[in-house]
Design a protein around this nucleic acid. Sequence first.
DNA 1: GAGGATCCTAGGGGAATCCCCCATTCCGAA
DNA 2: TTCGGAATGGGGGATTCCCCTAGGATCCTC
Lengths: 226, 226
Amino acid sequence: MNGPTKATAKDVRILVVDDHSIVRRGLVDVIKREPGMTVCAEAASAKEAIQAIREHKPRLAIMDLSLQDFSGMELIKQIKAMDPAVSMIVHSIHDELLYAERALRAGAHGYVMKSEETEKLVAAIRTVVKGEIFVSDRMSSRILGRMMGSKVDINSQPIEMLSDRELEVFEDLGRGQGTRQIAEKLCVSIKTVESHRESIKTKLNLKTASELIHVATHWVMREGGT
Amino acid sequence: MNGPTKATAKDVRILVVDDHSIVRRGLVDVIKREPGMTVCAEAASAKEAIQAIREHKPRLAIMDLSLQDFSGMELIKQIKAMDPAVSMIVHSIHDELLYAERALRAGAHGYVMKSEETEKLVAAIRTVVKGEIFVSDRMSSRILGRMMGSKVDINSQPIEMLSDRELEVFEDLGRGQGTRQIAEKLCVSIKTVESHRESIKTKLNLKTASELIHVATHWVMREGGT
DNA sequence: GAGGATCCTAGGGGAATCCCCCATTCCGAA
DNA sequence: TTCGGAATGGGGGATTCCCCTAGGATCCTC
């Protein structure tokens, strides 16, 4: 393991976004031991992240998908809109197969699962800084497979049919949140959340509200949501 | 922030168990900056953890609940069985309200959510080393609240406080059935099922309907093989 | 066996939600 | 440019939730 390296003016400046302070600690520790990169700011929420980008103008942001205030996917879109020069790497406990494509489509440049060794993350940073996309081999072959037009969707869950917003509502339902709480968290009308619930039910072929919550809870448990 | 402190022979020797290397990094970084404690070993799985306990005889283990090979709850029981001198603190992403009681009953001495600041974890270590139990204020007041007015059922699951009929309704809820379907199945009025739901909520200290279904689904998934 | 506790049953009634229908806006794909 | 999907929400009746009350049954206790 290397010792910490001295920060220089040429270092890649990185913003670390994660609502778990212990993970931020780990990220900072990993990055400061690598030559050529330095952590210029930390954020525990989406709001702090946006603030930090304005203040510190990082070259790259490493972010979790599950944040307290609003969803990581939303944060990706906002950052992309406000400063396209900031590259983003998603660092999440969620399965790449389920979220990487969404994240890349939203504007991220890389996806590394938290279960990966830290070397993977460092490799991702170096790759993304060069302007390339970083995903796992498993993931890239899957994406390529889909490009070839082959209908590989036999194994894919119907969950993938959900839109970003719908998935967000679905996860919150699976975490035991009610329609009202979700509406407040997302800062939208209850009616909107109700609409999302309805389309989720349609897409997943569910009939009643209890079925919906049931399936959502199961799903969150298996995919290990926040 | 303190600098790293020198390890001494009197330090509390800690084993860190987490399947995310980035979290282990963070934990090691936090602990080595605190005087009087040191990380004597790391493990990424339950198997490695057991091995490490044999080899390094730590005073305390900090562990995640979700591990690759088998469940963290199982690991707690095994460690307790093989060496009761090892104290355990659960450091998990999962909600305390759902898992802390189980963990304590299985043999853990503390529960800290990953969303907490690192100071909480350090406080937990210091508390547990003194032989005390560490949970959040929210959690301890909840447990105390349950002890008041009921005949101190510390050792029994709160689920066991349910009457036969209530348990039946609870299980059906956990299987995704709605109030109406349950009423039809049991050949009673909807109002009766509603009454049962209410008393279940009271006994399990739940506030909303979605929480109830959430907890019921969890329970049926883990225990209720019916 | 009288009193108490708990259980199962279920109604009343207002608040909240579910659920289906529909409208608007925006954006990207054909 | 047209069209479909996504996100947002309103209308309004049906349904559920949630808190209150309460009678009959059973079981335990004094």
